[in-house]
Design a protein around this nucleic acid. Sequence first.
DNA 1: AAGTGTTTGTGAATTATTTCACAATGGCAG
DNA 2: CTGCCATTGTGAAATAATTCACAAACACTT
Lengths: 203, 203
Amino acid sequence: MIPRKTIYRLSIYLRCLARLRENSIGTVSSEALAKAAGVKPTQLRKDLAYFGTFGTRGLGYDVNELLQKISEELGTSSLQPVILVGVGNLGLALLSYRGFEKEGFEIIAAFDTDPDRKRDKKISQPIFGMHDMPKFIREKNVKMAILSVPPAVAQNVVNTLVDTGIAGILNFAPIVLAVPEDVMVNNVNLAIELENLSYFIQG
Amino acid sequence: MIPRKTIYRLSIYLRCLARLRENSIGTVSSEALAKAAGVKPTQLRKDLAYFGTFGTRGLGYDVNELLQKISEELGTSSLQPVILVGVGNLGLALLSYRGFEKEGFEIIAAFDTDPDRKRDKKISQPIFGMHDMPKFIREKNVKMAILSVPPAVAQNVVNTLVDTGIAGILNFAPIVLAVPEDVMVNNVNLAIELENLSYFIQG
DNA sequence: AAGTGTTTGTGAATTATTTCACAATGGCAG
DNA sequence: CTGCCATTGTGAAATAATTCACAAACACTT
């Protein structure tokens, strides 16, 4: 089984390769790519070895081919629909963040307890009330959700999400969520990231 | 030396303990706290053992005391000034995010190439031009920065930050930054988090 | 004050991840 | 076509992180 960390790094390699391609670079050695990705060459090679062998000895990797293979492995080839729950400050910013589509994701709708509240920013996605959510998820067969609700209600919302078939949650609420083990949660906690930095810079 | 992952978890324990205190709970066992934090009890105990012994056998941990000790260990006791660079969509949202102060951080100023651009949202922090940044950092002795600039200029900005004494960077730009090894970078890449979820939910 | 039950703290064992070291392979020059 | 050079792919070794297993310590009851 491929380690979780390897999967993370595959995403990084993917982005480095995309930049190489933009610069019309056709082949790359594990040394060069590893450097660009901030890892050691042996680690890169080991990571790739988990799902195949793609290089040419003495030469390196074909940028396009490797891009293709990693993309397949990650399942990024097709556009994944995502919903966002909780349209506060952060939620609104994420909705207007144009960096997802390029990477194969599209936030197709947002949900909030108060969908009609006045918000300062124009966004292209529709905002619905929370009770419309289960139906929407089922009908559109959505599998992934971004959670940016206040911590106090997060667990409740998650229970609903899980019940309606969501299998992956990107959680911004500063709380540890309880989910069945077939549901995957990735936590992004900005305060913890800062705290972590703060620890390491003061030794 | 304390593992990096342990430091991350200490931050999580801290937040769980804070909630216990809010609920007027005075003591907690490693089992209960570990469950709240989403880890195994032995891991919690091992983590704590890295920097001391605080529990009472047969009873558990004093919530207040442990809170205090972890907080000291993390160096969260004092308020850390932070600057933010790049006031676009995401930067603006982070500026208005009120979740940092509570955790001991304050974004005291923001910098942007176009500080006077019209922005939809009201924020309390001042926005300065990029050329004011080095002076500001040195005068206020800022050590931490949040980076939310476009990827194309990120490395450039980082070089300036490093030169002026920044030691910790929370990077939202989707690019691998090159920094001297005494500078710490924590990356937050939302597209990668989504990609990662997507991989694991489809098996 | 002794006995019982609980829970910590930790050395040892296990498991996971990273790094090393080098044989195998193909490109390329002559 | 042969030999050299560069670079991959990969078992083995090293390192790191987690989990186990249990003795030690304390609270609480009687």
